[in-house]
Amino acid sequence: MKKRKPQGLHSFKAANGTVYYTCLHPETGKRHSLGKDFVIACKVLHSLQAQYRTDREQQILNRINGSGKTFATFIETKYLPMIEATDMKPSTRKGRKHYAKLLVKQFGEKPLTEVSTRLISEFMDGYVERGKARTAQSIRNSLSDIFTEAISTGWMEANNNPAKLTRSPKVRTQRARLTLEQFKLIYAQATEEWEKRMLELAILTSHAGTADLSTLQKPKDGFLWIRRTKTGEGVKIPLELTLERLGWNLGDTVQKCASTKILSPYLLHHIRDIGGAKRGHKISPRLLTDTFKALAIKAGIDWGDKKPGTLYEVRSLSERLYGEQGINTQTLLAHKSAKSTERYHDTRGDDWHTLNLKSTSPDTKDLQKPYNGKPID
């Protein structure tokens, strides 16, 4: 007689033919093994479901009777109004709302004080196991912000932020860094003049973010004025700036942008009507992204086992090249801290340093002496 499995009980057959049972935890969503005994597996599942129903019923009753301060109630009455009242970038506000909504789905009916470090850790583990460590990191940051607000408004006791007690998920950067040789190969594939200007401006200004490139406007007073879309920080770059490794000058590229003879405030602009874009309109960030991707594919760039580099990686390459010239790259990149600039200087293992045996610097001149085969003391 075929066994009738209760709802929520899952099974799979091993290579040796043995059937094993599993279930998903009603609260965390994690899969747990229940062994191969069908009766025991059913009993454990029923106990787990009964316990969860009891907790769930109590949480709903608390919310209805007003005797419990639930996670969802705090988000709706305190956290979201705080986000709306705080001066922040629209993209930041949108991101915080997104994660607040996600967290309400997970912890909504639970009393705020019962959202423990263990529950948070298990919830994040589910994302890490699916290869979404960065999302898990964002969840941790969002919860930390939520509980900080709860403490400041008296919903929780001081020094009781359960999110801060969790271990921050380690995020391994998988996108490849762009090398100068790869950049040259990509540039060689550019056939349209605006494609060349896009690449030139990206590496000459170090502002390769598509939103920043798309809105670059004509210079004034001998400077290119750039305000970063991401942070709002601004920098004035003199047109005399030259990237020595390529022999390119910013002023020359700006002059080439103006050679289209089209009246437009933007350096990168359409020279003819295309679809909804009119002549003189700025080139959209999406088109810049897609164009770089197409040029890289056409150039046959081998990214190895890492994700393909994007146009934004030109920013890191530019920082490294200007660093060799002695340019203050923190100012050039419009960074508030040197730590941010250091991250761009990291090649992520995509660069190799060559030992120069002809160097005459005091630190390396001893390497030029002939090795006589004797042990070094």
Results as ranks from 00 to 15, higher is better:
Asn65Met: 04
Gly247Asp: 10
Asp363Tyr: 11
Leu61Gly: 01
Gly66His: 06
Leu243Lys: 06
Thr70Cys: 06
Leu102Ile: 07
Ile64Arg: 13
Asp346Pro: 13
Glu129Arg: 12
Arg272Ala: 11
Arg167Leu: 12
Arg130His: 13
Val254Arg: 00
Thr205Ile: 00
Asp377Gly: 13
Pro265Ile: 02
Glu122Gln: 12
Trp352Gly: 02
Lys196Cys: 10
Asp37Thr: 00
Ile40Gly: 03
Arg197Cys: 05
Trp352Asn: 11
Ala14Tyr: 05
Ser316Ala: 15
Arg96Tyr: 14
Thr135Asn: 01
Tyr371Met: 08
Pro6Lys: 01
Thr291Met: 09
Ile376His: 12
Gly131Leu: 05
Leu263Ser: 15
Pro26Asn: 07
Ile262Tyr: 01
Ser144Asn: 14
Trp303His: 03
Pro81Ala: 02
Gln137Gly: 04
Arg197Gln: 15
Glu195Lys: 06
Asp37Glu: 12
Gly300Ala: 04
Lys369Asn: 09
Lys5Thr: 14
Ile327Lys: 14
Gly222Gln: 04
Thr70Val: 05
Leu268Lys: 01
Leu102Trp: 00
Gly131Lys: 10
Leu178Thr: 14
Lys307Phe: 03
Phe147Gly: 01
Arg167Pro: 00
His270Arg: 13
Glu84Thr: 04
Gln49Pro: 04
Glu233Tyr: 08
Thr54Cys: 10
Asn249Cys: 09
His10Lys: 10
Leu45Tyr: 01
Leu185Ile: 03
Glu76Lys: 13
Phe107Arg: 02
Val235Gly: 05
Glu57Phe: 03
Asn65Pro: 06
Arg53Leu: 12
Ile226Val: 09
Asn372Arg: 07
Ser33Thr: 02
Leu241Ile: 09
Lys230Asp: 05
Leu317Trp: 04
Glu129Tyr: 04
Lys13Arg: 15
Pro162Phe: 05
Ala208Leu: 07
Pro375Ile: 06
Ala15Phe: 04
Leu250Thr: 01
Ile297Val: 15
Thr215Tyr: 09
Ser152Asp: 15
Lys298Ser: 15
Thr364Ser: 09
Lys69Asn: 12
Arg315Leu: 10
Lys132His: 13
Ala136Pro: 02
Phe71Trp: 02
Thr117Ile: 06
Lys306Tyr: 07
Leu185Trp: 10
Glu129Phe: 02
Lys256Leu: 14
Asp302Arg: 08
Lys230Ile: 13
Glu192Cys: 01
Lys2His: 06
Gly280Ser: 02
Met124Asn: 04
Ser33Asn: 13
Leu143Trp: 03
Ala100Phe: 01
Thr179Cys: 09
Thr289Met: 08
Ile226Cys: 07
Glu233Gly: 08
Ile327Leu: 07
Lys110Leu: 14
Asp350Val: 07
Gln182Phe: 07
Lys236Ala: 11
Pro238Val: 03
Leu332Asn: 07
Leu267Ser: 00
Leu24Gln: 06
Ile83Arg: 03
